[in-house]
Amino acid sequence: MASMIQVRDLLALRGRMEATQLSHSLNTPQPMIDAMLERLEAMGKAIRIQEEPNSCLSGSCKSCPEGKACLREWWALR
């Protein structure tokens, strides 16, 4: 199980990553990584970077049944 320090260090090394990438790299369950990232965000140490809805290449995001599930979300250090 990873710690918040390990999450922070991996973000520092890689620049920006998705939560799923962090989960696989640190061999930690996704909900735990999500909680740590949200805590880092609340502390002002990490920021959430979301794709703009107009950057969808196929244009199918507007009619996506999952509600724009194809839009990616990254995390980076401040």
Rank of each mutant, 00 (worst) to 15 (best):
M1Y: 00
M1Q: 00
M1S: 06
M1C: 00
M1G: 03
M1I: 00
A2Y: 04
A2C: 12
S3I: 07
S3Y: 09
I5A: 12
Q6P: 05
V7I: 12
R8A: 14
R8L: 15
L10G: 01
L11Y: 13
L11K: 12
A12T: 13
L13K: 13
R14C: 08
R14Y: 08
R14E: 14
R16D: 10
R16P: 00
R16Y: 13
R16H: 14
M17I: 10
E18K: 15
E18F: 04
E18C: 10
T20N: 07
Q21L: 03
L22N: 06
L22S: 05
S23I: 09
S23A: 15
H24P: 00
S25N: 10
L26E: 15
N27Q: 15
N27S: 14
P29V: 02
Q30M: 11
P31E: 08
P31H: 07
M32F: 01
I33G: 06
L37W: 05
L37C: 05
E38G: 04
R39Y: 04
R39K: 13
R39I: 04
L40C: 04
L40K: 03
E41V: 14
E41S: 11
A42Y: 11
A42H: 12
M43K: 14
G44F: 05
K45W: 13
A46E: 05
A46S: 13
A46D: 05
R48Y: 11
I49T: 07
Q50S: 12
E51L: 00
E51N: 01
E52L: 03
P53S: 05
N54W: 07
S55T: 15
C56R: 11
L57P: 01
L57H: 09
G59N: 06
S60Y: 12
C61K: 09
C61E: 15
C61W: 06
C61R: 11
C61G: 15
K62I: 06
K62R: 13
S63P: 01
S63A: 05
S63H: 02
C64I: 03
C64S: 09
P65R: 11
P65G: 06
E66S: 11
E66I: 03
E66C: 03
E66A: 05
G67R: 10
A69F: 03
A69E: 08
C70A: 03
C70G: 02
C70F: 00
C70E: 02
L71H: 14
L71M: 14
L71G: 07
L71R: 15
R72T: 13
R72P: 07
R72L: 11
E73Y: 02
E73R: 07
E73I: 14
W74L: 09
A76H: 04
L77Q: 01
R78N: 01
R78L: 01
